[in-house]
Amino acid sequence: TETYTFDSEDQAEEFAQRAQKKGYTVEKRKENGKFKVRVE
């Protein structure tokens, strides 16, 4: 499980979609103005 942090929602969304296409489970959340994407 890895967590990635992005400054913009667009970046987080793009990353999450790519990860989902590769078959990963993706969980997105906003925390302290940053966008976190957890991938497993």
Rank of each mutant, 00 (worst) to 15 (best):
1 T>I: 13
2 E>G: 14
3 T>M: 09
3 T>Q: 06
3 T>D: 11
3 T>E: 14
3 T>K: 03
3 T>L: 08
3 T>F: 11
3 T>H: 06
3 T>S: 07
4 Y>C: 05
4 Y>P: 01
5 T>F: 12
5 T>E: 12
5 T>W: 15
5 T>S: 09
6 F>R: 00
6 F>A: 00
6 F>Q: 00
6 F>V: 01
7 D>L: 06
8 S>T: 14
8 S>P: 00
8 S>F: 10
8 S>M: 08
9 E>M: 06
10 D>Y: 09
10 D>A: 12
10 D>G: 08
10 D>E: 13
11 Q>I: 08
11 Q>T: 07
11 Q>D: 13
11 Q>P: 03
11 Q>N: 05
11 Q>W: 05
11 Q>H: 07
12 A>N: 00
12 A>D: 00
12 A>W: 04
12 A>G: 02
12 A>Y: 02
13 E>A: 06
13 E>Q: 07
13 E>D: 14
13 E>Y: 06
13 E>W: 06
13 E>T: 08
14 E>L: 09
14 E>A: 11
14 E>N: 07
14 E>D: 11
14 E>H: 07
15 F>K: 01
15 F>I: 02
15 F>P: 01
15 F>S: 01
15 F>E: 02
16 A>L: 09
16 A>E: 04
16 A>S: 06
16 A>K: 05
17 Q>Y: 08
17 Q>S: 10
17 Q>M: 10
17 Q>T: 10
17 Q>R: 12
18 R>D: 11
18 R>G: 07
18 R>S: 11
18 R>E: 13
19 A>Q: 10
19 A>F: 10
19 A>P: 00
19 A>T: 05
19 A>I: 09
19 A>D: 01
19 A>H: 08
20 Q>W: 06
20 Q>G: 06
21 K>Y: 06
21 K>M: 10
21 K>Q: 10
22 K>W: 12
22 K>S: 11
22 K>R: 11
23 G>H: 03
23 G>P: 00
23 G>E: 02
23 G>V: 00
23 G>K: 02
23 G>S: 02
23 G>F: 03
24 Y>D: 05
24 Y>H: 11
25 T>A: 09
25 T>I: 14
25 T>H: 14
25 T>Q: 12
25 T>E: 11
27 E>W: 08
27 E>G: 04
27 E>C: 14
27 E>R: 06
27 E>I: 12
28 K>A: 09
29 R>F: 15
29 R>W: 15
30 K>T: 11
30 K>S: 11
30 K>F: 15
30 K>A: 11
30 K>I: 13
31 E>Q: 05
31 E>L: 04
31 E>K: 03
31 E>R: 03
32 N>E: 10
32 N>G: 11
32 N>S: 06
33 G>Y: 02
33 G>A: 03
33 G>F: 03
34 K>D: 03
34 K>A: 08
34 K>L: 09
34 K>M: 09
34 K>P: 00
35 F>W: 15
35 F>P: 02
35 F>N: 02
35 F>D: 01
36 K>L: 15
36 K>M: 15
36 K>A: 11
36 K>I: 15
36 K>S: 10
37 V>F: 00
38 R>P: 00
38 R>C: 12
39 V>R: 01
39 V>C: 05
39 V>A: 02
40 E>C: 14
40 E>D: 11
40 E>T: 15
40 E>Y: 14
40 E>P: 04
